[in-house]
Structure formats: structure tokens, C-alpha cells
């Protein structure tokens, strides 16, 4: 089936996966989203600057 059911043995499975997922190596993801955040901040402050300059 697609994702999950709430049968008891599957709940057990979930308990095992919890900590495992926590250790998943996602440093690349974190770096990538920080770059995205940086782009958002830079462009926003850029246009805000333009707005203040033109006021």
C-alpha cells in the first residue's frame, strides 16, 4: 500500500525508524536551503533599498 496503516506491528516499525531518520545525513540539504534563504533575503533587501531610495 502507498504509505502506512495503523496496524500494531507497523507502529513498532515506526518506532525503529524514528531515530534512524534523525541520523540521516542532510547537511547538503541544509546548506542548499540556506542558499535559497540567502537569495530571498538579498533580493528582498535589494528591492526594499530601492524603495527607500526612491521615496
Amino acid at each position: 500500500m502507498e504509505t502506512q496503516t495503523n496496524s500494531p506491528e507497523k507502529k513498532k516499525g515506526h518506532k525503529q525508524t524514528g531515530p534512524q531518520t534523525e541520523q540521516e545525513n542532510l547537511k547538503g540539504t541544509f546548506a542548499a536551503v540556506l542558499i535559497v534563504g540567502g537569495i530571498i533575503l538579498l533580493s528582498w533587501f535589494g528591492v526594499f533599498g530601492l524603495f527607500l531610495e526612491r521615496a
Binding site: E2, T3, Q4, K10, T17
Partner: peptide
């Protein structure tokens, strides 16, 4: 193509 989670997940 329909992806699935790797392990059962609680929803």
C-alpha cells in the same frame, strides 16, 4: 511513477 516512503510512517 508514484513514490513511496522508505519505511512505514505514522500519519
Amino acid at each position: 511513477p508514484i513514490g513511496e516512503t522508505e519505511k512505514e510512517q505514522q500519519v
